[in-house]
Computed example of a mutant assay.
Amino acid sequence: MSSIDSIIAIERFSEAHIEGITALYNDPAVARQVLQMPFQSTEVWRKRLAPDNERVVQLVALHQGQVIGNIGLEQISRIRRSHCANIGMGVAQAWQGQGLGSRLLATVLDLADNWMNVQRVELTVYADNQAAIGLYRKFGFETEGLLRQYAVRDGALVDTLAMARLRHGPKAD
């Protein structure tokens, strides 16, 4: 067990975490690296919590009861894409580079692989976010394409990478 494992708890996102999630994504350093809008209300997060859908898993990482990270996994509901899921995550700036992202990602990939039978996990990441890209590659994600001028950040249109991890690798012809 690594040192981070002994001081960090991972729990399912619940009503008790709404204030912490709101604060996490309202931090300008975090909002800058994800597709969430800054200055969101707690009501926005309460609505995201509301659906009781086993295809959606939202987890939080806690240090001494404070939300320091979040990851979401959403299995696609369309029948022909039900083998796929999307992920999105955010880690508090003070905890970046300390293994928290790895722990969150490993947790949802275990759920995807061993409980949900997901074969393909997809994500988008800003093309200049080398730390996140490195993390995703460490877990087997590969770049599938460049999405030009995908999102607004700091008043400019910026590129993202489309990445995916195939559980059983590409199918041979």
Score class of each variant (00 low, 15 high):
Asn117Gln: 10
Thr107Ile: 08
Gln98Met: 12
Gln96Ile: 02
Val118Met: 02
Leu105Arg: 03
Val118Phe: 01
Asn117Asp: 10
Lys47Asp: 13
Asn117Lys: 08
Leu111Arg: 12
Asn70Arg: 13
Val91Phe: 03
Thr124Asp: 15
Gln130Arg: 12
Leu111Lys: 11
Ala112Gly: 04
Gln119Met: 09
Asn86Ser: 14
Val67Phe: 03
Gly69Ala: 03
Leu104Met: 01
Trp45Gly: 07
Arg78Lys: 13
Ser77Arg: 15
Thr107Tyr: 05
Gln58Gly: 12
His63Tyr: 11
Asn53Glu: 12
Arg120Asp: 09
Ala61Asn: 04
Glu122Asp: 07
Leu59Thr: 04
Val91Tyr: 01
Val67Pro: 09
Gln64Cys: 13
Gly72Tyr: 11
Trp45Asn: 05
Lys47Gln: 14
Gln66Val: 10
Val125Trp: 01
Gln96Asn: 00
Val67Gly: 00
Leu100Arg: 00
Trp115Gly: 13
Gly88Phe: 04
Arg48Glu: 15
Ala92Asp: 08
Gly90Ala: 07
Ala131Val: 08
Asn53Gln: 10
Asn117Ala: 13
Ala106Phe: 01
Leu62Thr: 01
Gly69Ile: 03
Tyr126Gly: 14
Gln64Gly: 09
Gly97Met: 05
Ala85Val: 05
Arg81Thr: 13
Gln93Val: 08
Gly101Asp: 00
Gly101Tyr: 03
Arg46Phe: 09
Val108Asn: 08
Gln130Tyr: 10
Gly65Leu: 00
Leu49Lys: 05
Leu73Ala: 05
Gly99His: 01
Asp113Phe: 09
Ser102Thr: 12
Asn53Lys: 11
Arg55Thr: 04
Gly97Trp: 00
Arg48Ala: 15
Ala92Tyr: 05
Leu62His: 00
Met89Val: 09
Asn129Asp: 04
Gln75Cys: 07
Arg46Ala: 13
Gln93Trp: 10
Val67Lys: 02
Leu105Cys: 04
Val56Leu: 15
Ala85Asp: 04
Arg48Phe: 14
Asp110His: 11
Arg78Met: 11
Glu74Met: 11
Gly72Pro: 09
Gly88Ser: 01
Ala132Asn: 02
Ala106Pro: 05
Asn86Gly: 13
Arg48Gln: 14
Asp52His: 14
Glu74Trp: 11
Glu54Ser: 14
Asn117Met: 06
Arg55Asn: 14
Val121Lys: 03
Leu62Tyr: 04
Ser102Asp: 15
Ile87Gly: 00
Ile87Phe: 00
Val67Met: 04
Ala94Asn: 11
Val121Cys: 05
Glu74His: 14
Val60Ile: 06
Val118Glu: 01
Tyr126Thr: 09
Gln119Gly: 09
Leu62Phe: 01
Trp115Leu: 07
Gly72Gln: 12
Asn129Gly: 06
Asp113Leu: 07
Ala112His: 01
Leu109His: 04
Gln93Phe: 07
Val121Gly: 05
Ala50His: 13
Ala127Pro: 00
Asn70Phe: 13
Leu109Phe: 05
Gly88Cys: 00
Ala131Arg: 12
Leu109Met: 11
